[in-house]
């Protein structure tokens, strides 16, 4: 198996928590993983990306080549579009629908929605609403997004559940349960709404 994921968002949105769960899921199950992050200047509200590569064979490059990503997993809708050249032909875009508007020329929301819905394979999630509804806390929205991408990640779902537990257990049972619920809700949503 091999799944190459572009994680996308805006500095400060915490995409690295998604990467941490993936990393834990990979490493405790003896999979190979490379995950390149963006640190430094761009963390100040700029566009950020992380390349996460999971495989049962050694992973060489830290970066994903263009046209080969299996999934673009974005926590911000415009950022999902920025990395389309990386997506393989039958790859999936999984994105949050909530715009983060911190630039004056942010595109009209209607145009953004149209561009996303025109994608052949995409899951568009109101992650905050789903996190509130399923987990009782909007802060679990990033884990909702991971759940929404999970049907397209070629590892058993239990690995991701255990990854969530490993990453959040030091914050207490309440936080862990909340994030497990968020993960499952995201997965359920994607299964029902993948288009």
């Amino acid at each position: 198996m091999k799944t190459d994921i572009i994680l996308a968002g805006v500095g400060g949105q915490g995409i690295l928590s998604i990467a941490a769960v993936l990393g834990s899921a990979a490493i405790t199950n003896n999979l190979y993983m490379k995950q390149a992050e963006t640190h430094g200047m761009s963390q100040r509200g700029g566009d950020v990306q992380s390349h996460a590569r999971l495989s049962d064979r050694p992973v060489y490059s830290d970066l994903i080549a263009r046209g080969t990503a299996d999934i673009i997993l974005s926590v911000e809708p415009m950022e999902a579009l920025r990395y389309l050249p990386y997506l393989k032909e039958d790859g999936y875009v999984v994105t949050s629908s909530a715009p983060l508007v911190n630039v004056p020329d942010y595109p009209p929301l209607e145009a953004l929605r149209e561009a996303l819905e025109a994608l052949p394979r995409r899951v568009i999630v109101d992650a905050e609403a789903l996190a509130r509804e399923a987990a009782g806390n909007a802060r679990a929205s990033n884990v909702v997004m991971l759940g929404a991408a999970s049907p397209f990640i070629e590892i058993p779902f239990e690995y991701l559940e255990r990854g969530v537990i490993a990453i959040f257990e030091r914050k207490g049972d309440g936080v862990t349960d909340m994030n497990l619920k968020a993960l499952r809700a995201g997965r359920q949503f994607a299964r029902e709404h993948a288009g």
Binding site: G11, R66, G67, M78, L81, R82, L87, E89, P107, A115
Partner: peptide, 21 residues
């Protein structure tokens, strides 16, 4: 030759430079 990219960045995507918090 590498696998061709099938999609370009849509024109509506704008730059998002870093900024002071």
């Amino acid at each position: 030759p590498r696998r061709a990219t099938t999609m370009d960045v849509p024109g509506i995507v704008v730059a998002r430079p870093p900024a002071l918090c």
